[in-house]
Computed example of a mutant assay.
Amino acid sequence: MTDPKALLTEPNLADPDAAYRLIVQAHRDLSEAESAAFNARLVLILANHLGDVEILRQALALAREAR
């Protein structure tokens, strides 16, 4: 059993290519500033969906490591 307070880092999308295409399509025809604002809104929406600050903290740390 996995720890419910641990960020899931194993592949978890049934169709990752479709997910990627959706993200790319959502950015189509947006300026760089509009794209950045879109990403910020999306992060907040998904963070709210997570509903767990500890998992969000882990996700943010992992994203920063990938720089």
Rank of each mutant, 00 (worst) to 15 (best):
E34M: 04
R64E: 06
A26M: 07
Q25V: 15
R64K: 13
E65C: 10
D52V: 03
A6V: 02
G51Y: 05
F38T: 02
A36P: 03
A36T: 06
E54M: 05
A47G: 15
D3G: 04
D15L: 08
L50K: 04
P11N: 04
L22V: 00
A66T: 03
N48I: 01
Q58N: 01
E65T: 13
L50P: 00
S35E: 09
Y20L: 15
V43Q: 13
N12C: 04
R28E: 09
K5T: 05
L42G: 04
R28K: 15
T2P: 11
M1Y: 11
H27R: 15
N48A: 10
A47V: 04
R21T: 08
R67L: 06
L56H: 01
E65D: 12
D52P: 00
L42Y: 11
A19R: 09
R41G: 12
A61L: 15
A6H: 05
L44A: 13
H49V: 15
D29R: 14
T2W: 09
L42V: 14
T2S: 15
A66V: 06
A63V: 10
H27C: 12
E54F: 05
D15C: 07
R67K: 14
S35Q: 09
D29E: 12
R67H: 09
N39D: 15
R41L: 04
S35Y: 06
I45A: 07
L8M: 14
L44Q: 13
E34C: 03
L13P: 01
H49Y: 09
D29Y: 04
L56Q: 03
N48Y: 07
A6D: 09
R28Q: 13
P4R: 07
D52N: 11
Q25S: 15
A47T: 06
L8D: 01
A40Y: 06
L44E: 11
R57V: 00
R28G: 11
L56D: 03
I55Y: 09
N12K: 10
A18D: 00
R28I: 08
L44C: 08
A6L: 05
D29H: 02
I55K: 12
A59T: 01
E10N: 00
L44M: 04
R41D: 13
A26Y: 01
D29Q: 01
I45T: 13
D15T: 10
P16W: 02
N39T: 14
D52A: 03
L56S: 02
V43H: 07
T9P: 00
L60N: 12
N48H: 07
L8E: 07
I23R: 11
V24Q: 12
A33W: 03
K5E: 14
L46Y: 12
A18G: 00
Q58Y: 02
A6T: 08
A33C: 00
F38H: 08
I55V: 12
A26P: 01
Q58D: 01
E54K: 05
R41Q: 15
I55Q: 07
D15K: 07
E10D: 12
I55L: 10
D3F: 03
L8K: 15
Q25G: 06
V24C: 13
A18H: 08
D52R: 07
A37D: 13
Q58W: 01
L60K: 10
R67D: 10
I55R: 14
T9A: 03
A61N: 09
R67V: 00
T9D: 06
A66Y: 03
E32T: 04
M1H: 11
T2A: 15
